[in-house]
C-alpha cells in the first residue's frame, strides 16, 4: 500500500516529473550519444571555429574538436562524479552523523573533532599530493576525493537532527524497551528522517558535480579525458566568449546548471511525496 502510494504521487508530482525528466534526458544522451557521433572527444574532426551545422551539431572548438562529442563524453564524467562523489559523501556523513548524534558524549566529541579536521584539510593540497603519486588524475579519483571531503556538512546536519530526535518520546520508549542503539537508529530515527536523507543525497550529488566543475576550472580536474568542467576551462582559457564562440562556452555550463537544478527539483518533489502535508497545502 505504502509503496503504491509513493509511486502514485511520485509519478503525479510535477516537480518530480520535470526534474527526473531532465536528468533522465541527459542520462540518455550520455548513453546513446557516443553512437550518434563519429568523432573522438579530443580529435580534430573539423575546421576550427565552426558554427553549429549538420556535421557538427554544436559547432567546433578553437581547434576544431566537435563540441557535441565532448559534451556527450563529458556527461559521463559528470554523472560519475555525482554518483561516486555524492554517494560517498552522503554515506560517510550518515554514518558519522548518526553515531555522533545518537551516542553523544565522548564519541560525539571525537567524531566532531574528526569532522572539523576534515573541514580544515586543504582540498587543494590533498589533490596535488594525490596527483603526485598517481600517474594521472582520473574522474574516479577526483570523485573519491570530493566524497571524502564533502561529507562534513551532511554529518553535521544528520547529527543535529538525530540529536533532537533522540530525546523525543518514541525514541525514549524504544530505548526503554531495550532496543540496541543500532536498531534504534535504523528503525526509529532513520525513517523519521527519510525525506531528509534523500534530500541530502540529491544535494550531495549536485554538490559533487559543482565541486568537480570548480576543481576542473582552477586546473585541478582530471588530467586525462574530458569533462564538462574541463570544457568550460578550455573555453575560458581560449577566450571563447570574447571571440564569439558561444556554442563552445555556453552549453557545458548550461548543462551542468540544468542537471543540478533538475536534481533540486526532484528534491523538492520528493519532499512533497514524503510529506503528505505539503500536498494539502
Amino acid at each position: 500500500m505504502k509503496k503504491n502510494e509513493f509511486l502514485y504521487f511520485a509519478l503525479r508530482n510535477t516537480r518530480m516529473q520535470i526534474g527526473l525528466g531532465i536528468v533522465l534526458f541527459f542520462f540518455a544522451v550520455m548513453i546513446i550519444g557516443p553512437s550518434l557521433t563519429d568523432y573522438d572527444p579530443n580529435e580534430y574532426s573539423g575546421p576550427a571555429f565552426a558554427r553549429p551545422s549538420e556535421d557538427h551539431w554544436l559547432g567546433t572548438t578553437f581547434f576544431g574538436q566537435d563540441v557535441f562529442t565532448q559534451i556527450v563524453y563529458g556527461l559521463r564524467a559528470t554523472f560519475i562524479v555525482g554518483a561516486v562523489g555524492g554517494g560517498l559523501a552522503t554515506l560517510i556523513g550518515l554514518i558519522v552523523g548518526f553515531i555522533a548524534g545518537y551516542k553523544g558524549g565522548i564519541l560525539d566529541e571525537i567524531l566532531n573533532m574528526l569532522t572539523n579536521i576534515v573541514t580544515v584539510i586543504p582540498t587543494l593540497a590533498l589533490l596535488i599530493i594525490i596527483a603526485a603519486y598517481l600517474p594521472y588524475r582520473g574522474v574516479v579519483s577526483q570523485s573519491i576525493i570530493i566524497g571524502c571531503i564533502a561529507w562534513p556538512w551532511t554529518a553535521r546536519a544528520v547529527r543535529a537532527q538525530t540529536f533532537s530526535l533522540r530525546s523525543r518520546e518514541f525514541v525514549d520508549l524504544a530505548r526503554m524497551s531495550g532496543m540496541s542503539s543500532m536498531k534504534i537508529i535504523v528503525q526509529e530515527i532513520a525513517p523519521n528522517m527519510l525525506s531528509y536523507l534523500f534530500m541530502a543525497l540529491i544535494l550531495q550529488f549536485g554538490g559533487a558535480i559543482l565541486a568537480a566543475a570548480t576543481l576542473d576550472f582552477i586546473g585541478l580536474g582530471p588530467t586525462e579525458g574530458i569533462s564538462l568542467g574541463l570544457m568550460m576551462q578550455n573555453a575560458v582559457l581560449w577566450s571563447a566568449i570574447p571571440l564569439g564562440l558561444w556554442w563552445w562556452a555556453l552549453p557545458p555550463g548550461m548543462i551542468i546548471a540544468a542537471i543540478v537544478s533538475a536534481l533540486y527539483f526532484m528534491n523538492t518533489g520528493l519532499d512533497e511525496i514524503f510529506n503528505p502535508k505539503l500536498r494539502e497545502m
Binding site: F49, F62, V236, L237, W238, S239, I241, P242, L243
Partner: peptide, 28 residues
C-alpha cells in the same frame, strides 16, 4: 591572473602593453 581578463582589458583600452599569450588575436 587570466588571459581572459587581459583580453577584456585590452578591448576596453585599459591595458596598453600586454605581454600575454592571447589566443584569438588574429581574429580580433
Amino acid at each position: 591572473f587570466s588571459n581572459n581578463v587581459a583580453l577584456g582589458m585590452i578591448l576596453q583600452g585599459e591595458l596598453d602593453v600586454s605581454n600575454f599569450f592571447l589566443p584569438g588575436v588574429p581574429t580580433l
